[in-house]
């Protein structure tokens, strides 16, 4: 990586590692689970896919991984068409499924060895040992999977997905049924993987998880991708708080003396709304209130509100058309 010239590096990194084009899925029963999805995942990023139950997250992931056939559209993964050049595409992808599907009677070691072979990689016990150690599974390597707890099984699935050194890792709800400690372990591991250059796509119901982990966030609802946004940008929107002051006397224009603050009038001049950034040190509220007092502007009530990612999420999901516009 270090040796390659900067120019070619940036050119390479601008080519998405996954490119989803016009993908739709109608299940055998006639239910349309995905509607014309277009999505680019950048090399090396952590992308979080959010959406309510049944939105189509697992369906989308399953199509990219080759488990479900798309009804329409095409997908390029790591430079290879997933249908025409499925070997190369799939060899680059690791998947941790949402459900805990494991071979109950196999040992941990046997199952990760199997996964590595299945994906066409020559044996490498040293690498597999490292994977198991990183996931605190090394002590359990000879145990049968059925003897492990749910959280441990989830780790085994992660180890299986990593066993063939994928450049793209899908984590379908990695924190479902996982305690706080394991969740933090997992976040740490995901960050380490990202530092090593792995691209990670995860789905989650925990907004906190997306906030902590993701570089970008996509929201999917009823089979439609209704938002894809840089997390920082989203956080800035989210970082905006509003202070609403209900005035005793309605005003028609904002006095010039208050031009230092970003104020808007609403409720026909009965309310003054001040928007401020929670990320900065000084909110400017104290000064504003002092200035109001100095200019004899009285208010009978004040209330502050904040839009969380959760709010944005909920409003998006319930009003998809507005969000798109």
């Amino acid at each position: 990586m270090n040796k390659s010239p900067t120019a070619s590096l940036s050119a390479e990194s601008s080519i998405p590692i996954i490119s989803v084009r016009g993908v739709s899925k109608t299940y055998a029963g006639g239910f349309q689970a995905l509607k014309n999805i277009n999505l680019d995942i950048q090399r090396g990023e952590i992308f979080a896919l959010l959406g309510p139950n049944g939105a189509g997250k697992t369906t989308l992931i399953s199509i990219v991984c080759g488990i479900v056939n798309a009804s329409a559209g095409s997908i390029i993964a790591d430079g290879h068409d997933i249908a025409r050049d499925y070997r190369a595409a799939r060899a680059a992808i690791g998947l941790v499924p949402q459900e805990l599907h494991t071979d109950a009677f196999e040992s941990v070691w046997a199952t990760v060895t199997f996964s590595r072979g299945l994906f066409g990689k020559p044996p490498n016990p040293t690498y597999l040992e490292k994977v198991l150690r990183d996931l605190s599974l090394w002590d359990k390597r000879n145990e049968k999977i059925m003897a492990l707890s749910g959280g441990m099984k989830r780790r085994v699935l992660i180890a299986k997905a990593l066993s063939h050194e994928p450049t793209i890792l899908f984590l379908d709800e990695p924190s479902a049924g996982v305690d706080v400690e394991l969740r933090h372990d997992m976040w740490r591991m995901v960050r380490e993987l990202r530092e090593q250059g792995t691209t990670i796509i995860l789905t989650t119901h925990y907004i906190e998880e997306a906030e902590q982990m993701a570089d970008r966030i996509g929201v999917i609802s009823k089979g439609e991708l209704i938002l894809v946004e840089d997390k920082e940008v989203l956080m800035r929107k989210l970082g905006n708080k509003q202070l609403t002051l209900r005035l005793r006397q309605p005003m028609s224009i904002i006095p010039a003396e208050l031009s230092n603050w970003s104020l808007t009038l609403c409720e026909h001049g009965h309310a003054l709304v001040y928007s401020f950034d929670t990320q900065t040190e000084e909110t400017g509220i104290a000064e504003l209130l002092r200035a109001l007092g100095e200019h004899g502007i009285e208010f009978k009530d004040l209330r502050s509100s904040e839009s969380s990612l959760e709010d944005i999420f909920v409003s998006l999901v319930h009003r998809p058309m507005e969000a798109q516009a």
């Binding site: 080759g66 488990i67 070997r87 799939r90 060899a91 998947l95 499924p97 599907h101 994906f119």
Partner: peptide
């Protein structure tokens, strides 16, 4: 039956 077929389907095997 066990659901582990996901791995076979997602693997680069013909």
């Amino acid at each position: 039956w066990a659901g582990t077929i996901y791995e076979l389907l997602s693997a680069p095997v013909s």
